[in-house]
């Protein structure tokens, strides 16, 4: 029977390890995403102005949920990132002498609570800094759009996968199946995104941002008023999540044999 004090100590150490090993990479993505949030707000404002006189309806709760979803996505990316190192990283939790339940619980806690809060904190701070310095909420993203680079922003998680895939290929000891899958998934993503860049910008659709797209898709899917609407959003959801789903599938499919 596990001693409660020891169990608690192991659990908190696992959390500490997850956070200490991942904080840098987690910080990068929300920092970059935060730059885009003024644009999201501005786009909503424009859309609302065009269609009705409704007020800005993006709430803190929405953002928190968005950050949560985004956190989950990033954590999935991190999981795939870690797979490349798990074979050799002695600090991987895989072989730590603790119960599988504690390992699982600590991962879930990090994915569901700690990382989203952490992400959102950084996100909010940088958002404030951006507004404070620019004075204009959407200036940075407007610039990006002008240059036609907007697709880069939602693709950031995939860029990380792409980077890791190449890194994996560089190291001969790593599993090429995972690496190739990563590259194919990235290719699929870019194929999907690039043709839509123009329409996104022209129509000023709010969901140009990956995390927000995903969040909205889930939300609309579950609250759809008609089958057609649900179907459309389901397709959108699939388009946006398919690469990640497939990549995650590949990760778990090959995990046991790869580690």
């Amino acid at each position: 029977m596990l001693n409660i004090k020891q169990t608690a100590k192991e659990f908190f150490t696992l959390i500490k390890l997850h956070v200490s090993h991942n904080w840098k990479i987690i910080a990068i993505v929300p920092s970059m995403a935060a730059i885009t949030i003024p644009d999201v707000i501005e786009l909503i404002r424009r859309q609302d102005t065009l269609t009705s006189n409704s007020t800005l309806h993006i709430s803190i709760a929405d953002n928190l949920i968005g950050a949560f979803v985004f956190g989950c996505i990033i954590y999935s990316v991190l999981a795939t990132f870690n797979i490349y190192k798990r074979r050799t990283m002695v600090h991987s939790t895989l072989l730590l002498p603790t119960t599988n339940g504690l390992k699982f619980a600590s991962e879930i806690l990090c994915t569901a609570v700690i990382f989203p809060i952490y992400l959102f904190s950084i996100y909010a701070i940088i958002y404030q800094i951006v507004i404070a310095y620019t004075g204009v909420q959407n200036i940075l993203v407007e610039k990006l759009m002008e240059n036609g680079n907007v697709f880069i922003i939602p693709a950031i998680p995939y860029l990380i996968i792409l980077f890791n895939s190449f890194m994996a290929l560089m190291k001969s000891s790593l599993n090429w199946k995972i690496a190739i899958t990563g590259i194919l998934m990235c290719a699929a993503l870019f194929t999907m995104i690039i043709p839509h860049v123009e329409s996104y910008t022209n129509e000023a659709i709010v969901l140009v941002h990956y995390y927000h797209e995903l969040y909205q898709s889930i939300r609309v899917c579950t609250n759809a008023v008609s089958i057609n609407e649900a179907l459309i959003w389901f397709i959108r959801l699939w388009v946006w999540t398919a690469p990640l789903v497939l990549y995650t599938w590949a990760y778990y499919r090959f995990k046991e044999r790869t580690i």
Partner: peptide, 10 residues
């Protein structure tokens, strides 16, 4: 305890 060939430490 397993010490791999490429010891990568945090």
């Amino acid at each position: 305890i397993f010490m791999p060939d490429e010891v990568e430490l945090p």
